[in-house]
Design a protein around this nucleic acid. Sequence first.
DNA 1: GGATCTAGCGCC
DNA 2: AAACGGCGCTAAATCC
Length: 597
Amino acid sequence: MTTSPHNTSTPVVEYEVIVNSSRLSDVLSPLLKARVIAIDTETTGLDPLSDRIRLIQIAVPNYPVVIIELAAISSCELSPLKQLLNNNAVKVFQNGKFDWQVLEIAGLRPKGPFFDVMLASQVLHSGLKKDRDLKSLALEFLGIKLDKTLQSSDFGGKLTNSQLEYAALDAFILLKLRARLISKLRSAGLLETAQIEFEAMPAVAQMELNGMLLDAEQWHLVSEELNENKQTALAELVKAGLKPAPSAQLSLFPEMAEIVNPRSSVQVLSALAALNIPIKSTSKSELIPLASQYPIIQLLLNYRKLASLCSNFAEALPKHIHPITGRIHPSYRQCGARSGRFSCNKPNLQNIPRNCTAKGMRTCFIAAPGYQIIKADYSQIELRIVAEISGDRRMLNAYSKGEDLHTLTASLITGKLLEEVTAEDRRIAKSVNFGLIYGMGAAKLQAYAEEKYDVILTLEEAKEFRSRFFQAYAGVKRWHDRIGKTVYVKDIKQIRTIGGRRRRWAKKPRLSELLNHPVQGTSADMLKVAIARLFKLLPKTGAKLIGVVHDEILLECPQTTLKRTTRILKKVMVEAGELYLQQVPVEVEVKISSFWA
DNA sequence: GGATCTAGCGCC
DNA sequence: AAACGGCGCTAAATCC
């Protein structure tokens, strides 16, 4: 076998194909003693809910790879396999989330501890652009060239020898990769971070299978409301005088000359120029300051927002309802963001609008009959982490006394007493707090406050609030200065969270990125630890993990266990937070409802 | 004509 | 001296 890092030829792997149950038992029994087993599956497709396993490949050091033709074994004779998947050996996967899902559905749920070579490599070079498919990993870490042309070949019919060789090699290579990755992770101080990922993996896999239930009728009503509003907005826009600028090209097609597409920045730019409204771009930040002066600008912003809501959400989501389960099963990538945060797609349920219609879009996600949705989120977690990392005395003090930090900031930047702070002052303070912790400048703060919090500040006010913020929170200022030196003096290109999760940069990072990672990443670490622990505790409650949104966990819980489940959820989340926050209390807010509240 | 990039929207 | 960060999706624009 040729697997030295310098030899780039594809190694040849011994294997045996198992097509009957008596041989299955014989072949698997010596493997039961192994400490580490690598597992790969070949399936009839990529949807765990509708496709099936064709092959299960199992690789153990010093044994030929076992390739099990699953269909050839009757389900009552799978016990040797179940025994192996359920023992205490480390199970090595590439993108184990998928294998876990197909095995779970086949009644073959594997038991940890797990090692996922994809997650391990993502933890290792988080922030750098690297491919994470098995072929790339084999080449990068082992110097082995894999031929993946067979991966997309048809595993549904009669299998060729080269398909079997490919399948065997895929499993075998995982053992080599794990060994190499462990030593890389250890020397980078990333074993603990990788462990968090591995333990969260089955929770994520189960969460995807669980999915969320969308009330299609309510959704339809919301869509209609939005669509009507959009049509009205368009009519108003035309009435206000949005029409194409005269141009030679359009005059050739008079029937097109009457309509401007408000979503086309090119057309809008020339149309507004014809109305003598001077803009360089059609971006929101450029338009907002002009909205009070020109009514048409406000109408344009209004239309664009509605059009985007219609196409992005109203029309898109129902297409994702799964024909088998009737639920929406998005895909979560646990190392999707460079910070260690989750990303979510197909569809992205992490950016469903909150308050865009009378009824709301999130409220259309409902619990199944007999269930309720429990939503729990970490309270102001990023600010708490900033307090912990910066060691700012005033922030630490405020949080330890259970004070409201936004009100405190409002008092500090306006000079008012705490009890004199108005709702408006507090909104200003929120924008100041969230904006300035990562070093936002005064001009951007001004725009940000208006866009997100409906607060109008002059540039002078924004400057003043900015300087008062850093005076009031001198520890935060010192933290910024300290990290700033590491960029500009020490030229560092990596930084870590409290738990040690690393982010790297290929080129010089921006200060704001260096400030951000330890905060966002620590919050992600907490969430992952929490869902990993929940995965072990939830089965006895009958509750299911159905979603995560950065600092929020969503469970669908039987009515009968609501109290107990809520207690467990809260406890697990607080304890996960306390692993990282020593100086700041961790608070979790819970809401229970029949829908996503 | 299809693939890719950009702008602008949503979320934490 | 100046500086928010992290995502995904759709439609329009642009590239090849």
